[in-house]
Nucleic acid binder design. Structure first.
Length: 364
RNA sequence: UGGGGCGUCGCCAAGCGGUAAGGCAGCGGCCUUUGGAGCCGCCAUUCGGAGGUUCGAAUCCUUCCGCCCCAG
């Protein structure tokens, strides 16, 4: 599979996180003969001493100096707060479980950041994501990363609408083990930091507390009810739970209970046993499609409804207003409003959108 | 007050003389650019209390305490 790469001599900016992956990606671009600029966004980060990602910026700066490329910082704290954090909090207040990553990629990294680097005179743009971009007669297409265990195409689907032009993912053809090997030869001046954290703007495990601070109405204790309406317990606040969740309910029973639904209007969590959960159909909004074209109604694809879940065979039924219904070959029990649904055909990303709701079997 | 039943981990619950199953909940870990799921591990030296019988008791006896049911 031929991965789209810029020609030697092209000017390309690469988003540097301060971690190993983006450092290796930058190195690959240098080897390809590109003029490389390292850029890092100053982001708003809750819970840090100085409310920004200063340590990451310092790491990125040090790595660029080590590699011998220029480094610039772009301050996007305000837009980040407005375009990523605010909608994130609002979604929780509405009883949803948002995944801010796809929108952040589209609006911040591949939006404002890349716009800034273009203005700096670097038309090309790269990141250390594990995904591939492949040329086709219709334009660039997005594919899963070769290392399927690290594949990040799920959080990139919103680039399908044109965000892939003059874009490169230098790690798309590599395995994580290969990246680590290359990194070892570079002698990078990086701290040993955790490979991955939670959402980049939150300290680990503090979702509820974070939402508590910014949307206290979403974090009030309320009832946990069974499907029949019977009260089974009390929850700490909707923001501490998500559809499909088992832990934290505190209900002693012969079988485990799972969250079936969050109802913001009544501040109620509905739960059920595994056998009573599941739906074949979901409705999604804000769909993006490869080359901007919805597939034919009833087309088969494989759909992922959560970052780490396996893709499941499904048919796609585009609707008006960029909405669609996805009908799965088998019922799924954790269709979660706010999460992304991403559609694949083979290793190619053919579409994606935001899950609005699961349809009951009667509705579908 | 008579008659009967029951009291085993936070909840449910095996065990019925041979040295405390299991489920749920909880806790910890693995995994992981989203708390999920899943998987792995931990979780009653003790069976309402006190005596007694026995080589040995949660299991038998006595008594006390606390619940429940039926009588009244």
């Amino acid at each position: 599979m031929h991965v789209h790469l810029p020609a030697a001599g092209e000017r390309i900016a690469i988003a540097m996180s301060g971690g190993v992956d983006s450092a290796v990606a930058a190195h690959r671009l240098m080897q390809a003969g590109c003029h490389v600029l390292g850029v890092t966004t100053r982001l708003w980060r809750q819970g840090q001493a100085c409310d920004d990602n200063g340590a990451d910026l310092a790491d990125a700066e040090a790595i660029c100096r080590h590699l011998g490329i220029p480094h610039r910082v772009v301050d996007l704290r305000e837009p980040f707060r407005r375009l990523v954090v605010a909608p994130f909090v609002a979604a929780y207040a509405a009883g949803r479980t948002p995944n801010p990553c796809p929108g952040c990629n589209a609006r911040i990294k591949f939006g404002l950041l890349r716009q800034a680097t273009r203005e700096m005179g670097y038309p090309w743009f790269a990141t250390g994501h594990y995904a591939r971009i492949v040329r086709s007669p219709l334009g660039p297409e997005l594919f899963r990363g070769r290392d399927l265990t690290k594949d990040q195409s799920y959080v990139l689907y919103q680039l399908l609408g044109g965000g892939l032009r003059e874009t490169v993912f230098p790690l798309g053809n590599l395995l994580k083990s290969q990246v680590e090997k290359i990194a070892a030869t570079l002698g990078l001046p990086t701290r040993h930091r955790a490979e991955s954290q939670d959402l980049c703007f939150l300290p680990a495990g503090s979702y509820g507390d974070f939402v508590q601070r910014w949307a206290p109405e979403a974090v009030r204790p309320g009832p946990i009810r069974g499907i029949g309406g019977e009260t089974l317990g009390t929850h700490r606040g909707l923001a501490y739970y998500t559809v499909g969740q088992r832990r934290g309910l505190g209900i002693a029973a012969p079988e485990p209970y799972y969250v079936a639904q969050l109802d913001a209007a009544s501040n109620t969590i509905y739960v059920a046993h595994a056998a009573r959960l599941g739906s074949h159909t979901l409705e999604a909004s804000a769909l993006c499609y490869a080359h901007g074209r919805p597939p034919a109604a009833g087309s088969w694809a494989r759909a992922k409804i959560r970052y780490r879940s396996a893709a499941v065979a499904a048919t796609v039924w585009p609707l008006r207003h960029a909405r669609a219904r996805i009908v799965f070959a088998r019922p799924l029990r954790d269709i979660t409003p706010g999460q992304a649904v991403v559609l694949y055909q083979g290793e190619r990303v053919v579409g994606g959108g935001t899950i609005e709701r699961a349809l009951t079997e009667e509705e579908a």
